[in-house]
Design a protein around this nucleic acid. Structure first.
Lengths: 346, 346
DNA sequence: CTGAAAGCGCTTACAG
DNA sequence: CTGAAAGCGCTTACAG
């Protein structure tokens, strides 16, 4: 049918030139109709739109990005999408960015992959900005972005004194608050189930918790190592509860471990919160489920995401703005897994 | 410092021309080093690579895609990323595609958005293929893709007699199998908690379940409407269990509702599986947790994803291949929430 | 308000 | 094996 015989894919894609021909205008005018509508007379716009409709024209976003140097794509790097709380983060980021007419180019570093390996791939696609969540950082990442002039935002981690912007839950203070409410309620034998070593979230939560315990005269507490999974929380709690001096309160570095801890307590016949209080961090949906009713520090996810998007887009518009690190406070959600004073002072 | 004074973002990005100048070769040669390395002499390659290294050159993937008509980007549309089981799907797709040197352009249709609204945005970015998961379909989607010659793959849904490829769990047969094992074990008062109306997964699971019940002489069973959430499963189960003739087995259209149902049973003092068996569908991680130990139909996710990726990439290479719809069998995972025969015949 | 032309950063026949 | 040149599909001064 066509005069061009070709079986190459995409040969039939319609371009602005064809629309122009059909509408009897120049290709420039077609372009303007889609990129600067106000610059075109109404009648002309109408003709162009009509021709576009008939031909099924859809402007090529990549071709235009080549010259505008804006792709409206944001690279989002997330190590484990399945780790609790992050699916929500990903969904919110994607929807929020789409509302603002930005697309998400998603990267998930596998178990063997480093972010450093993946970042060149991200940058090759000329993303306007990069969001790093849930990933171990190195300063190389910052360097690579700075070099290309790509705005960088760290989500729930931070690198002070670099060009990286960051939005974090105030994990340090969250740890302190948990220590406070547990001590206020009279708990005396405290324990901490740690998340993955060297993650900034775990570091800060543990530091805040420990610091406050010491400040209030508690110099000894139990500690078990988990790695942010249900199974590790279960195992760690089991270990703690089977001791001759079991804790009367356990602070878990995230919710999913706290759910494991609750199940371990249940299986050991330890009454919660009667014999032992259990507190988590995150407030994932399952924390609210009837079997768990977990008391936990809620991360202000929506606020964090809104702040992240705003910060990032601002830096894209104005690369000269100084980098900013923002900490947002968490909020204690009281359910029934911890014995707390009714209206504890924070 | 530079002779060009400009504060436009990206002005400093290094191109193949600069590398060529530094390496003392033509820009074509630089291009070949990165896109067809075998076509260049070793010594030349070395010089180019060195110059690239020094300048921090990273080829612009979008510029090259303009002429190759391949972006190596796959558009992935997912309605609710947070709905159980889909975070894993997303993670796997992303990692698998990245291994094969493809990128994922992610779209999550918000509650108000239709896929139809979002698809033009996907296509504008010249993706080589589109994966639709977890989304209500219309034939417009298929049309839009066919028109542009973009390969289309439906994940866990299907549209026979169109150009859309599909990879599905065999939900129909899964429903049958659940009916079989429950009847085999002597359950007599069966109930179904439905997922979202008009989702193909719910339709097929319910149809298979009902069909087999009728075939085996059961013409009456209970049905409650859920919508694939924990809360709706809880509420539906509560309603069923509070009846004067409560069911002795409940099949839930997905796991998350089954978890709600288990908690409802627990809160009602109904012994599981003593008084009532509960079976789910999916085998999400929480199904294995100690408090739940849910018996469920496992979807063969990894196989489904591998098949999807392979099918899609094949159609991208050879657009003339006929569309294919593949159904992959689920597998019953026996835990302790259902009273079943020990070695039931499937 | 509109068009002709240059150019974004690559790939790829074509010729040597 | 290498280079000069055309071209992918747009945007955007520039001139009218």
């Amino acid at each position: 049918m066509g005069k061009r015989t070709s079986n190459k894919p995409g040969e039939r894609r319609v371009t602005a030139v064809e629309v122009a021909r059909r509408a009897g205008v120049s290709q420039s005018t077609v372009s303007r109709v889609f990129s600067a509508p106000n610059a075109v007379a109404d009648a002309t716009t109408l003709r162009v739109l009509e021709a576009s409709e008939q031909l099924g024209y859809n402007p090529n976003a990549l071709a235009s990005s080549l010259i505008t140097r804006r792709t409206n794509m944001i690279g989002l790097v997330m190590a484990e999408i399945t780790s609790p709380f992050y699916p929500y983060v990903l969904e919110k980021f994607t929807q929020r960015l789409h509302e603002l007419d930005r697309r998400v180019l998603l990267f998930s570093t596998g178990p063997n992959k480093e972010v450093d390996d993946v970042l060149p791939d991200v940058l090759r696609y000329q993303v306007d900005g990069v969001i790093i969540a849930n990933v171990t950082l190195t300063s190389k990442i910052v360097d690579a972005c700075v070099r290309r002039g790509t705005a960088l935002l760290l989500f729930n981690r931070y690198m002070p004194d670099t060009r990286a912007n960051a939005v974090c839950c105030d994990n340090l203070n969250g740890g302190r608050m948990v220590a406070d409410v547990l001590l206020d309620a009279g708990h005396t034998r405290l324990a901490y189930i740690a998340g993955k070593q060297n993650t900034s979230t775990n570091l800060d939560r543990e530091r805040g918790f420990g610091e406050r315990l010491r400040q209030r005269g508690h110099t000894v507490w139990l500690r078990a190592q988990g790695h942010y999974t249900y199974e590790s929380g279960y195992a760690a709690a089991l270990e703690l509860l089977q001791r001759s001096d079991p804790p009367d309160a356990i602070f878990c570095a995230n919710d999913i471990m706290a759910l494991g801890a609750l199940d371990a307590a249940h299986d050991q016949g330890v009454a919660v919160p009667g014999q032992c209080s259990i507190v988590g961090f995150d407030d994932i949906p399952a924390a609210a489920w009837a079997s768990y009713a977990l008391t936990t520090m809620r991360q202000p996810v929506d606020t964090m995401i809104d702040a992240s998007v705003q910060l990032l887009l601002e830096r894209i518009e104005q690369p000269s703005l100084p980098p900013v690190t923002t900490f947002l406070p968490g909020q204690l959600v009281r359910r029934s897994s911890a014995r707390l004073l009714h209206e504890s002072t924070q």
